[in-house]
Amino acid sequence: MLLLIEQLLNGLQSGLMLFLMAAGLTLVFGVMGLINLAHGSLYMVGAFACAGVAAATGSFWLGLAASIAAAAAAGAIVEVAVIRRLYARDHLDQVLATFALILIISEGTRWLYGSFPLYLNVPPSLSGSVILPGGIQYSLFRLAIIGVGLLVAVGLFLLIGKTRIGVQVRAGEADREMIAALGVDIGRLYTLVFALGAALAGMAGALVGTIQSVQVGMGEPVLILAFVVIVIGGIGSIKGALIGALLVGLTDTMGRVLLPSVFDLFMETSAATSMGAALASMAIYILMALVLLVKPGGLFGARA
């Protein structure tokens, strides 16, 4: 039971980090109609910036700030240099150009840092574990990540729902010609949205990189999970991204814990472990297929 609650928290944590990734993807698609494969590269840029600055200054917090700044800056540069030319193109061109960006950014990072994984230290103030009500021992850093994820989610909802920029973003999703005609600088808005998504991805990269490791290619599995999230949630919907991310995070984590023991009930242990592990790795895709069968446009999708 204690293990189960711990795994629930882990699922929540990975779900919230996925949300940081998926929010940027879904915003960029919703507002600019762009499918961006290079979003995972921005996640990686954030992680490497954090590792680099933390190693140079000894401060995780400066590293975290640097990860957000570096990813946002990388996002803005990429948007102005490349992405801007892709808005009017079809999805195939967008896929290939951003695939090329992945090759460039990954290989460039490998050139600078080498292929060996880097490791980040949890800041001293957040190391160790806490005892939660009910006697569960849980990593303080992971708990902090959950807190940060929730805060960012609330902040993003307020930004999109209550501020002037949010109004422009939502108007941009609905009718971009119209808001351009009303005097909003659409080019600047696009760069801003892209940089915002990049900053969220970079922050997720730094936080997850601290738990796991920082290496080239770390963004790609997360990118594909984020795609699953926004397909489930409905492309363009922040609320869908949040619900989808939590569903995917929990399904993935709980599947890995529960499925082997479920199969253990009617199979021998070694077969049950491998069968459970194999099925658990497919669980989120099966979830996605089920959602698509019922709602082809995703749970909260406006457009199909």
Binding site: F29, I35, H91, V95, I224, F227, V228, I230, V231, I235, S274, A277, A278, A280, S281, M282, Y285, I286, M288, A289, L292, L293, P296, G297, G298, A304
Partner: peptide
């Protein structure tokens, strides 16, 4: 059942599903 960008992401996701199955089987 879907089209456009959904189709791209879904075919990608199913491809990954088989990839992870092969790794963990």
């Amino acid at each position: 059942r879907t089209a456009g960008v959904y189709f791209i992401m879904i075919t990608l996701a199913f491809g990954q599903m088989i990839f992870y199955f092969a790794i963990s089987w």
